[in-house]
């Protein structure tokens, strides 16, 4: 990724992430979060993680943010009133943030990768093709499609991710499926109106359907 683009997208991501906590209107905060996530997806794609970048846009900027906006509309929350906040807590939060930034910066500085640019670690197509063909010969499942793309000098990210996911992380994928099922059941249970209490239960429902 060219340096100007990297600076543009990281500034976009960081700036709108700050705007999320600086805005007092929740709708504005949610929309800022969408822009921040789109910038982040661009950074992912710049790191040649194309699949993760697309998933970031589809899941976060699409589904999750629509859910957020939907809930905000449902509850018609007014803006938070400005309140003086605890100086000590704010200073503590900023201090922890700066400390973590220095920690990560220090680790990266002592680490070889910290000083490397993306051009210093190019994808080694020849080595990858040889290793994949050796693996395929010894019976490990390797996508021929992805190997063919590598031979043309293209990084077929989705095929490689799928290969990894369904070979090495199959059990985890099924566990995620169960987790999502449980989350769905939990959401339905939480969202169900408890019928015996007509006052508290139905008033919330009426309010939601009016707005």
């Amino acid at each position: 990724m060219p340096l100007p683009l990297f600076i543009l997208f990281s500034a976009l991501t960081l700036g709108f992430a700050v705007a999320v906590i600086a805005n007092r209107n929740p709708v504005t905060a949610a929309l800022c979060l969408v822009v921040s996530f789109v910038g982040l997806a661009a950074l992912f794609i710049g790191l040649s993680a194309f699949f993760i970048g697309i998933v970031q846009i589809l899941v976060y900027a699409g589904a999750v943010m629509v859910l957020f906006l939907f809930i905000i509309m449902l509850m018609d929350i007014e803006e938070e009133e400005r309140k003086h906040f605890d100086r000590l807590r704010t200073a503590g939060g900023i201090a922890v943030g700066i400390g973590v930034a220095f920690l990560i910066g220090g680790v990266l500085w002592d680490f070889d990768y910290g000083k490397a640019s993306l051009d210093d670690v190019p994808v080694q197509f020849e080595a990858a093709i040889t290793l994949r063909e050796a693996d395929a010969d010894s019976g490990i499942v390797r996508s021929a499609n992805a190997t063919a793309a590598l031979r043309e000098g293209r990084l077929k990210d989705v095929a490689l991710v799928g290969e990894k996911l369904f070979n090495d992380y199959n059990l985890h994928l099924q566990m995620i499926a169960v987790l999502i099922l449980i989350a769905t059941i939990g959401v339905v249970t939480l969202g169900k109106k408890d019928s015996p209490a007509p006052d508290s239960g139905s008033s919330g429902g009426d309010k939601a359907s009016e707005s």
Binding site: L47, A49, I52, A127
Partner: peptide, 24 residues
């Protein structure tokens, strides 16, 4: 995962963790 090349390719173990984090 991009900077630590695994067999000449980006280390897809890291991207798997990202995938699961997004799902969870």
């Amino acid at each position: 995962s991009r900077f630590r090349l695994e067999a000449g390719l980006p280390d897809y173990d890291g991207q798997m963790l990202v995938f699961f984090v997004i799902t969870v």
